[in-house]
């Protein structure tokens, strides 16, 4: 039995295809049986590119994880830019918080990339032309949109996941996104952390969930890659 905790085996490779070891370890830890492993290998052989500029996330659990990886790529790139070019008047406390959020999102991205291994979709092209990074209101509005959309995407895709380890990982990430969402909302308008724009039905007190087909049009404006999830429900 391989030692699953040898750190050097999990260092992210520069290439888009991390070592075979990463994928194998992840599957072993997840307790995936031979059937599931076969399914994953099969999906690894599937082309993610339909043409030069279209990326489909794939199907099943790998499809959901790639969908998450795509959203984390977007959030990570956004916050990297926010911290690299702070808006005018960004307070030290805000810079600290945005740096922390950036690190969380970059870590989510790097973790999913390592976990997916050869099954990972390629790096997506981003276009933040609609965001004015010099303006606090523009940045906070975009951050709120990314976080609320991210929460709704994880909430709406959870049921598609069939492996309990993967579901657990999605759960570990989504509540951190919800913490971010509430924090950003409080920066924009104090006490709007869970207002009626996200908890739409006050009689149930439930957050918003969205299907991939509802999320993709929201994020398309920030992508130069044509991201599809044609094999997810």
């Amino acid at each position: 039995m391989e030692n699953l905790t040898q750190n050097d085996e999990f260092v992210v490779q520069e290439s888009s295809a991390p070592s075979k070891m990463q994928r194998r370890s992840f599957l072993k830890y997840a307790g995936a049986g031979a059937a599931a492993a076969g399914m994953l290998v099969a999906s690894a052989c599937k082309k993610h590119h339909d043409d030069n500029n279209t990326v489909d996330v794939g199907s099943g659990d790998i499809g959901v994880l790639n969908y998450a990886y795509a959203l984390e790529q977007l959030e990570a790139a956004f916050y990297t830019q926010v911290v690299a070019t702070p808006y005018s008047g960004m307070s030290p406390a805000e810079l600290t918080a945005f740096t922390e959020i950036r690190d969380h999102e970059v870590l989510h991205r790097e973790f999913l990339k390592a976990a997916l291994g050869v099954n990972a979709i390629p790096a997506l092209g981003v276009n933040f032309g609609s965001i004015n990074f010099a303006d606090r209101a523009s940045v906070l509005a975009a951050a709120k949109a990314f976080e609320d959309t991210g929460v709704s995407a994880y909430n709406g895709a959870g049921y598609i996941i069939s492996n309990s380890t993967y579901l657990g990982l999605a759960g570990k990430i989504v509540s951190v996104e919800a913490r971010h969402a509430a924090f950003i909302r409080d920066l924009i308008n104090y006490n709007s952390f869970a207002d009626s724009s996200v908890i739409v039905d006050s009689s149930t007190g439930l957050d918003t969930s969205r299907k991939p087909s509802q999320v993709l049009p929201i994020v398309a404006v920030y992508l130069t890659t044509n991201l599809t999830a044609n094999q997810l429900p």
Partner: peptide
């Protein structure tokens, strides 16, 4: 999950 994320917003 929709309750879970509301609790996280509260937290």
């Amino acid at each position: 999950l929709n309750i879970h994320s509301v609790e996280a917003r509260h937290a």
